[in-house]
Amino acid sequence: MEVVNVRKIFGSGEGQVAALDTVSVSIRENEFFTLLGPSGCGKTTLLRLIAGFDFPTAGEILLYGQDIAPLPPFKRPVNTVFQSYALFPHMTVADNIGFGLEMLGKPKAEIKARVAEMLKLVKLEQFAKRKPHQLSGGQRQRVALARSVAKRPKVLLLDEPLGALDKKLREETQFELMDLQQNLGLTFVVVTHDQEEAMTMADRIAIIDKGEVMQVATPAEVYEAPGSRFVAGFVGNVNMFEGKIARGEAGSASIDAGNGLTIRTDNAGTAGAGTAVTFAIRPEKIKVSSKKPAEAVNAIEGEVYDIAYLGDMTVYHVRLDDGQVVRASTMNAARITEDPLSWNDRTWVSFRPDAGVVLTR
């Protein structure tokens, strides 16, 4: 699927609002593709345009080379799973799954066989005769999936499909969705604002902000090599140091971060001397210790401002002498901490020159 220079304008005259501003995205066949962004960024608008519930102001939506943008929803080979699931309360699970096939006029024998296949796929064979209100949230979600997949669409669209589930069930269902997508060999396009959900399920993620696609990449690339300050700050936790390139060559550089702080990095890219940059580094890349590391290239002194023990890891907030607070996280691999730190202790934070990235936008 190709979304080519799509714009969507709501309103008219001075009240016009651009929900999507010249968006282009390429979605591969059989890919688990996620649209991720904050509320109001335009991700659901893009999903609705693909589904046919809205029409673009400009641009094309190509499916296997055919522009489907002018087509109504029922003529598009796509199906949508809504956050509310939209199940018919008076119908059984089996009838809900088979409803779309009935509307297409399929023979009863074919509908029965397809419904049985879908029930087995989502592991709900024993619930075929139950009504939606007799199911758990996770089971209702699987019924909605089975109903959408029964018509064998080329693309399945999912709008916040796990939003109504509790945290533990949501985590379990993420892997069920991934297995289902692999078994079906379908293209999944999922809208979510949950970063962890997107990182877990997606083959690739499109980060959207204010109607623009900021970056399209794999979860690892989005996390380790964000393309902008927004992406770095939106996905996961990050520390950012503002400064200017003091000197550098072949990708390595020294960054003047003010107040006498110089950061040495191996990931400066093409940024030249004098360029205003942001140095971004994830908390787990930073080490915390009571003594200055002897061989650390980047070591900064500060004071422990806050500590959060999370079981598998401990998160430290360290206030540097210039007032900036740095977040560092340490895995609790051993039951006893070798270098225990407490509130208000003087400490050092340090990191390798290849641990962070330099951002110019």
Rank of each mutant, 00 (worst) to 15 (best):
F99L: 13
S26L: 05
V304Y: 02
P89K: 08
T265W: 00
N30P: 00
G251S: 07
T330C: 05
T44H: 04
A333F: 01
R361T: 08
L341F: 01
L49K: 11
D339L: 02
L121Q: 07
A58R: 08
I205K: 10
M331Q: 06
K123T: 10
G302Q: 07
T80P: 02
A58C: 03
S254W: 02
F53R: 07
F241Y: 05
A19M: 08
F188K: 11
A250W: 00
N239D: 12
H193T: 13
F175S: 15
R282G: 07
I68D: 08
N298T: 11
R327E: 15
T187R: 03
M313Q: 09
P226V: 07
D312Y: 00
L341Q: 13
N237T: 11
N30C: 04
L261R: 15
F88I: 10
L158Y: 00
V231Q: 12
R152P: 01
F234W: 04
R282M: 05
F279C: 09
W348F: 11
R140W: 02
L71W: 06
A150Q: 04
P219E: 07
R152T: 12
G98F: 01
S12H: 04
A69T: 13
S26R: 14
R361E: 14
L119V: 07
I61P: 12
I208L: 15
I111Q: 05
L156A: 05
A296C: 07
F175C: 05
K151V: 15
P353N: 10
Q324F: 01
D54Y: 02
S329T: 14
T330F: 00
Y316E: 03
E60N: 15
Q215A: 09
N332P: 06
A94H: 02
I245V: 15
N298M: 11
A69P: 08
E171I: 13
T270E: 14
R147F: 00
H317Q: 15
L186Y: 01
D203Q: 06
M214V: 10
A128Q: 12
A86Y: 01
L47M: 14
T270G: 06
Q139P: 08
K8D: 08
T265Q: 03
A225G: 02
I68K: 13
D21E: 14
A225L: 08
Q181M: 07
S289Q: 12
P340I: 06
M91N: 03
G251C: 06
T80R: 03
I286H: 00
V149T: 06
W343I: 14
E125M: 05
R147I: 12
